[in-house]
Design a protein around this nucleic acid. Structure first.
Length: 721
DNA sequence: CTCTGCGCACTTTTT
DNA sequence: GTGCGCAGAG
């Protein structure tokens, strides 16, 4: 391939980054400025011009999706397979190193990954055993604390607990870590920390990796936390060069430990050159202008302003909805017209602040007959029935896995209750042995009632039998046999309703996922099962669903990062929702919310709608919110308020209401309403009341088609009749 | 031991 | 409005 092909078609700044000399570099890349393109071309450049071997390239991302995209785009560009190149997520690459050196890392060969849910359950069990009141110390909060400590590289021994609260947290942290170590389990934060310590404590190993990975590239650097930063720094050593790409304005994960400061810290620590990519290839000039204006309200910025050569485009439409139903119908009707105008649903997206908001939207889309796809929420491998099946497989692959044992010892119900279980737990704690072996010991010592003993023996037998018969089989057959023999299938088949059926289907899908799984040849797994189990923990199972159907894309603002759509709706842009209630309280959070708004707006390529509702049912309660402050921060000339235009079915003579007006139809066309429409709605309703006359008229309308129970009342100021 | 009903709490999320 | 943990009855 000709070198010029690598830089042709790039703008000056992009070219500067791609063809930069071998040195540490920060590419400050604004939204839609072609950062992935730069990373991909840089890798190709390193190979073509600097004659870098694929083995010497190490590229890190945050999500599997980003890693996958980078890999395929590199292959497309260099027109061959990425070979020995390491492209993956922080967790994926760390995990790979841990597998390869599990002994040095003090882990059993069959160590498994504990996800957030498992982690909380584990802590809950410990709290019970330690007699700690869960009301006062929610397991979730403690899990949060532990992860936060690990994210900053802090072990229990590094903590000085001054007050009783800290002391208690420390005690649980210590106990939790011991339990994990005994069971051969690592949580997500542990993967990174363990890998970091492994390299730090084994200089030969570290040197090996340092000498191999001469060229490091990191995406979305604004999202790195402390341990990730230290890990990169360690691997880079003094010889290697690193290119990081990031955007401080798109840092939206501060709440889970991401440090924007890492960008500036990198520039200092690594003596890096900075290149700014500010030309945007995605959005209209109007959308960019508004986004720039918004983000300028943040004080802590490195400074950057996006520009485009593209056209001005349409103004941003702001819609004041009466309530969330009205808002949803508005969105659905706009998408309907967009579809009817010959566009693809795929190219439209609805973005919201939290997942609970998707429900009403779904209903409106359904009513409008529009297909949709929701991203996020419960992922495939996190579903209850899937985790049950996986727990059996984990226990088969590692008898020490206490978390898996606890999960399935009595699933399906086989008569092993609390009493028997606490007996097993006591025995395990006293002898410091895994629950599995404690259970076996108890049965042999005959300390148990006949019924419980038989139940445990049956359970032990099922697992051991599966382990014996399984190893020869294909992975999918292993899974199938496990699901059947464990009794899980029967249990979920017996479950009535739509739910039960869906669960059985999911179990079947798990079997087919096993069939499709390819064991990576260059990673160190002792068996396909072990590889598959790691895969289910590290890849949450996104992409199982049918991505090919044309559908409206629905997701939270957080999960929209990195994506783009011609048509974007941001809904629920109200004080208390967005920015969220909680962000008012903590300092710095408001700026993060504003960055989130910036991220949302810059997803839009052609047209952006922003809506807010006057009134909204939240957690079963009616709430009234004012429009978000972010709306006021948008320049007037970029925004158009959508005015509901009204028709009255029997208009009063001479532009006035009269008692003879009994019915009003609100549509998307017709007359203009006053400059500030407080309440508006589509559909028809009965006029209850009116006041004033002519342009100052107000009508009160009841809409009874909304729900059987409550009537919606709309006030509208009519300008012309 | 297991099932049913009540009370509580509830951002954002990838790994 | 929903899901989950816990308490009391079967």
């Amino acid at each position: 391939m000709d070198v010029s092909e690598l830089i042709d078609g790039l703008n000056d700044k992009q070219r500067e980054a791609v063809a930069a000399p071998l040195q540490n570099m920060l590419v400050l890349a604004g939204a839609g400025s072609g950062k992935t393109r730069v990373l991909v071309h840089r890798i190709a450049w390193l190979m073509q011009v600097e004659h870098a071997s694929p083995y010497s390239i190490f590229a890190v991302t945050f999500t599997n999706k980003a890693a996958k995209e980078m890999r395929s785009r590199v292959e497309e560009t260099i027109k061959s397979s990425v070979g020995g190149m390491w492209i993956g997520t922080f967790h994926g690459l760390s995990h790979r190193i841990l597998r390869a050196h599990y002994r040095d890392a003090n882990l059993p060969e069959a160590f498994q990954i504990l996800d957030t849910d498992d982690q909380v359950r584990m802590i809950r069990r410990l709290l019970k055993a330690m007699n700690i009141d869960e009301k006062k110390w929610p397991a979730k909060q403690i899990a949060w604390y532990i992860s936060a400590r690990k994210d900053e590289g802090t072990r229990p021994k590094d903590i000085q607990a001054y007050d009783i609260n800290e002391q208690l947290l420390l005690k649980v942290y210590t106990a939790y870590q011991e339990a994990c170590d005994r069971a051969g389990l690592v949580d997500f934060a542990e993967i990174l920390l363990r890998c970091f310590e492994l390299l730090q404590q084994h200089p030969t190993l570290l040197r090996h990796y340092q000498q191999r990975f001469r060229y490091m590239l990191v995406d979305e650097f604004q999202d790195t936390n402390s341990i990730q930063y230290q890990w990169l720094k360690l691997l880079a050593g003094t010889e290697n060069t690193m290119m990081i790409v990031g955007d401080d304005d798109q840092s939206i994960y501060g709440w889970r430990g991401a440090k924007i400061e890492n960008i500036t810290r990198f520039v200092g620590d690594f003596n890096a050159e900075t290149i700014r990519l500010e030309q945007n290839y995605r959005s209209t000039a109007t959308i960019l202008k508004a986004s720039n204006a918004l983000i300028e309200n943040n004080a802590e910025r490195m400074g950057k302003s996006l520009w485009t050569e593209g056209s001005e485009g349409e103004p941003i439409s702001v819609y004041a909805a009466f309530n969330e139903l009205d808002e949803s119908r508005f969105v659905a009707s706009k998408i309907r017209s967009w579809l009817n105008a010959g566009n693809k649903l795929d190219h439209s997206a609805i973005l919201y602040r939290n997942n609970a908001q998707s429900r009403v939207l779904e209903e409106a889309l359904l009513q409008e007959g529009l297909k949709y796809r929701i991203y996020g929420g419960m992922r495939f491998f996190e579903r209850q029935e899937i985790k049950d099946a996986l727990a059996y497989l984990r226990l088969i692959s590692n008898r020490q896995d206490d978390a898996a044992f606890e999960r399935v010892i009595n699933t399906p119900a086989r008569g092993i209750g609390d009493k028997t279980l606490s007996h097993i737990r006591d025995c395990a704690r006293n002898e410091s042995m895994p629950l599995w072996y404690a259970a076996k010991a108890i049965v042999e010592e005959k300390h148990l009632s006949g019924r419980a003993a038989t139940a445990i023996s049956r359970f032990v037998e099922v697992v051991e039998k599966l382990d014996d018969s399984i190893t020869e089989l294909e992975l999918a057959e292993q899974a199938q046999l496990t699901i059947e023999q464990s009794g899980l299938l029967a249990m979920y088949q017996a479950e009535k309703g739509e739910k039960g059926r869906a669960r059985v289907e999911n179990l079947e899908e798990l079997i087919s996922a096993c069939g499709q799984y390819d064991l990576p040849i260059d990673e160190d797994f002792s068996s396909p099962l072990q590889g598959f189990l790691a895969y289910t923990s590290l890849e949450s199972g996104e992409g199982q669903a049918d991505e090919h159907e044309d559908a409206v894309q629905m997701m939270t603002l957080h999960s929209a990062k990195g994506l783009e759509f011609p048509l974007v709706f941001m809904v629920g842009v109200e004080e208390g929702m967005f920015p969220s209630q909680q962000s008012h309280e903590e300092s710095g959070r408001l700026e993060e919310e504003r960055r989130l708004c910036y991220v949302g707006m810059t997803r839009a390529m052609e047209k952006l709608y922003i809506s807010h509702a006057e009134s909204r049912r939240l957690y079963g309660q009616e709430k009234h919110h004012s429009p978000s402050r972010f709306l006021r921060e948008l320049p007037d000339d970029c925004v158009e308020e959508i005015r509901i235009k009204t028709q009255v079915s029997r208009p009063a003579a001479s532009g006035r209401f009269s008692p003879s007006v009994t019915h009003a139809v609100f549509e998307d066309s017709g007359y203009t309403l006053g400059q500030r429409v407080l309440h508006a709605k589509f559909g028809a309703g009965t006029v209850l009341n009116y006041e004033g006359s002519g342009a100052q008229s107000r009508i009160q309308v009841n809409f009874d088609d909304v729900g059987s129970k409550w009537l919606v009342t709309a006030y509208a100021r009519l300008q012309a009749m």
